[in-house]
């Protein structure tokens, strides 16, 4: 009887251990894929005066966040040189983003963070956790999303990032200068605050020069399927022949939009632009089938946030720029060459 119970217990323990292994493997796969993070975390255990920086970020399988993380990793080299460490905490998925992010912020505190860097995606869910960080006397930086308002309301030192609304306005104004009158803003994440702000800003920017912009929302059953997105955009272009520009909220969607314009044979009438940037956008801008891309320069968000966190804790350095904006930057035919060099390095 007792041996039987032991067996059961051993079995359960093995299963639990296997589960833990699996989970930690997933974690190291998606959130801290580089060995340096883990080494740094253990190395700093002795507390040799270095700064233990905890960065809450997105899933690193979306191209955007992999660039933010790359910036954080590059800045981590400086922190590591003085015995510090940078630990990246990311959610497994975006299904329950606010509460998940709040838990990660609490995890950072309970792991003994000297300074916390985090995005304020869902203020209602995350702000309480951010305030707990500040109440413990731990310096806090908000980056990527939330803006200066969020930073001030939770008592963070600064906000580092872009402003989606401003980015949209910049894109809209640029389109206005090119003489565009009717813009379609393709939104594959309808209801998300940042994609809505991008489309709203775009509309505001275009209206400045007398044009108009409308949103094309795509259902979640199309997300991650370029063919469904592409055929949807094609349909909208065929349906309304006054549309003369398509702007997408992300780079994968821009690839789909490029194919849609080609299939509708409207390359002469419809110009293409996108928020964010990758290699494929750059090559299209270079060969002239895409007009522009709006870059919030994600690499600098990770890089600057970690650098500022490190130098604030070590030396008390604060910058006068509040917020510290990393974008928008418009990439078009005039500056595409240097951006291509950055993309090849996995930075832009």
């Amino acid at each position: 009887m007792s041996t039987k119970r032991t067996w059961v217990r051993t079995g359960l323990a093995t299963m639990a251990a296997a589960t833990l292994l699996l989970v930690s493997a997933c974690n190291s796969g998606s959130s801290s894929s580089t060995g340096t993070d883990d080494e740094a975390t253990t190395a700093s255990g002795g507390g040799a005066g270095g700064v233990d920086i905890y960065v809450v970020g997105g899933k690193s399988d979306d191209p955007f966040w992999s660039r933010v993380k790359r910036g954080a990793e590059d800045a981590a080299k400086v922190a590591e040189s003085t015995g510090g460490s940078v630990t990246w905490l990311g959610p497994q998925n975006y299904d329950n983003l606010g509460p998940d992010a709040a838990k990660l912020i609490d995890t950072a505190v309970s792991n003994g963070a000297d300074v916390v860097v985090g995005p304020d995606w869902v203020p209602e869910a995350e702000d309480a956790a951010f305030k707990r960080v500040v109440d413990k006397g731990i310096p806090l930086f908000i980056y990527n999303s939330g803006g200066l308002e969020a930073a001030d309301s939770v008592g963070a030192l600064n906000y580092i990032g872009s402003d989606d609304h401003e980015a949209g306005v910049a894109g809209g104004e640029y389109l206005g200068e090119q003489g565009v009158q009717h813009v379609l803003c393709v939104n594959t994440l309808p209801g998300a605050a940042n994609s809505e702000a991008r489309c709203a800003g775009l509309a505001e920017g275009v209206e400045g020069s007398g044009g108009e912009a409308e949103q094309l929302p795509m259902p979640s059953s199309s997300f991650g399927n370029p063919t469904a997105v592409s055929q949807g955009i094609k349909a909208a272009l065929l349906k309304d022949d006054t549309v003369d520009a398509v702007v997408t909220i992300g780079t994968g969607d821009a690839d789909a939009a490029a194919s849609a314009i080609e299939q509708a044979e409207l390359g002469d009438r419809v110009s293409l632009g996108t928020f964010d940037l990758d290699e494929t956008q750059l090559s299209r801008i270079k060969d002239g089938t895409q007009l522009f891309a709006i870059d919030q320069q994600p690499y600098m968000q990770g890089y600057l946030a970690v650098s500022m966190a490190n130098s604030y804790v070590l030396y008390g350095i604060e910058l006068p720029q509040r917020p510290l904006l990393t974008g928008p930057a418009i990439i078009d035919g005039s500056n595409v060459e240097s951006a291509i060099a950055g993309a090849e390095a996995g930075v832009r």
Binding site: G29, D61, S66, D278, T280, S283
Partner: peptide, 22 residues
């Protein structure tokens, strides 16, 4: 589905440094 997603992500970041490859 989860395991392979993690493997794909991890390997593509280790090999290429990015998550979208042309």
């Amino acid at each position: 589905n989860f395991g392979l997603a993690g493997l794909t992500l991890g390997l593509s970041r280790v090999i290429t440094g990015t998550t979208s490859v042309a």
